[in-house]
């Protein structure tokens, strides 16, 4: 950790407390304390936590839209409050959850807005600006959309345009508030992979918030985990998993973080044990199916009944006797009516 201390991070927070102004009277309503975060170039950081943990507030505070309740934020070694607006615009760009709604605005013009910190008083684009805009349109894969109206695009395309606008701004730090909200599953993966590629190839620090836990654990370099009543942590996904932090921070009796699937799984309340002998692929399928009907798949030990895969299908040895079930659909039907049958 000593070597870390000497490094200048792109973004660094020291004992940061975040919150918002109390609607009545003065003072702040504090939602997170003692946040010590640091973002470096080339990495993707994903901010996760339950609703109300302060994800948006944290991003807005780090981006300078909300004042710090206490503590300090350093951008590239400089105190955030001391950086003039036009300089900050060249250091940090933000993609907000809400997409702009503007009639008659073309994708090219939208991306060109990213050049505002560099253009003159009237905002005229120089040839080098146009070259840079073409470049980011290519990186984000939306060059073919450049003459379309922004409002006519799909949510996934709009998100890529806003990311392209951020890239055109040529900032070392990009912060995105829930960039994958509203997107369908393929677009979510696409956006996440794009952000990863940008972080690596353009050497940027990317901070995003997300509710998509599985995707975040697969595609982020580090996770920033916050929750009400806990001190925020920043670590690589594997450490978060191995320290069982997800279950601690998302404390809930009805689900449990599955370290293999990297997702929250419902806790089976009755958890009647079923012994299964099958090939690996079928075990995975049966595990999912059994969970759905409140059974727990085991491969050894005492059990209520057993399912053994053979060349005919599935041999079920239950207290009622032994019988053969031919396919998965019928097996699901059997499990569904197990209670009434027994």
């Amino acid at each position: 950790m000593n070597t870390h201390k000497r490094q200048t991070y792109l973004t660094e927070s020291n004992n940061l407390s975040i919150g918002y102004k109390n609607p009545k009277g003065k003072g702040f309503h504090c939602i997170q304390n003692e946040l010590n975060l640091h973002l470096s170039a080339g990495k993707v950081y994903t901010l996760i936590g339950p609703n109300g943990a302060g994800k948006s507030t944290l991003i807005k505070t780090l981006a300078g839209f909300l004042p710090c309740v206490s503590g300090q934020i350093l951008m590239n070694g400089q105190n955030l409050n001391a950086i003039p607006a036009n300089q900050l615009a060249r250091l940090l760009s933000v993609v907000f959850t809400d997409r702009p709604y503007t009639e008659h605005l073309r994708v090219y013009d939208m991306v060109a807005m990213g050049r505002h910190p560099y253009t003159g008083f009237m905002g005229k684009l120089r040839s080098e600006d146009n070259i840079k805009i073409d470049k980011v349109l290519n990186i984000t894969g939306i060059f073919s959309l450049k003459d379309r109206f922004f409002n006519d695009l799909s949510d996934g395309e709009k998100q890529k345009v806003m990311i392209a606008k951020s890239l055109a701004q040529e900032t070392k730090i990009i912060m995105l508030d829930e960039p994958t909200a509203f997107l369908d599953f393929p677009s979510r993966i696409e956006v996440m992979q794009l952000l990863r590629k940008i972080a690596r190839e353009e050497s940027k620090a990317i901070l995003l918030s997300s509710h998509d836990i599985t995707l975040s654990f697969r595609l982020s370099d580090e996770i920033i985990l916050i929750a009400k009543g806990f001190t925020g942590v920043q670590d690589i996904p594997e450490n978060i998993v191995s320290k069982n932090l997800m279950n601690t921070y998302f404390e809930n009796a009805s689900f449990n973080f599955d370290t293999h699937r990297l997702s929250f799984e419902p806790i089976t309340t009755k958890s009647r044990k079923v012994h299964v002998e099958a090939d690996e692929f079928t075990i995975a399928l049966l595990s999912n199916m059994l969970k759905r009907f409140d059974f727990q798949l085991i491969q050894e030990g005492p059990h209520v009944f057993s399912i053994i895969q053979n060349h005919l299908g599935f041999q079920v040895n239950s207290p009622n006797g032994m019988f053969i079930i031919n396919d998965l659909t019928l097996l699901a039907e059997f499990l569904h009516t197990y209670e009434t049958n027994i």
């Binding site: 981006a63 839209f65 036009n86 615009a89 060249r90 907000f96 809400d98 702009p100 910190p117």
Partner: peptide
């Protein structure tokens, strides 16, 4: 783009 984006553009 809205006031937040405008502010972020400096």
């Amino acid at each position: 783009l809205g006031e937040d984006y405008a502010a972020n553009l400096g």
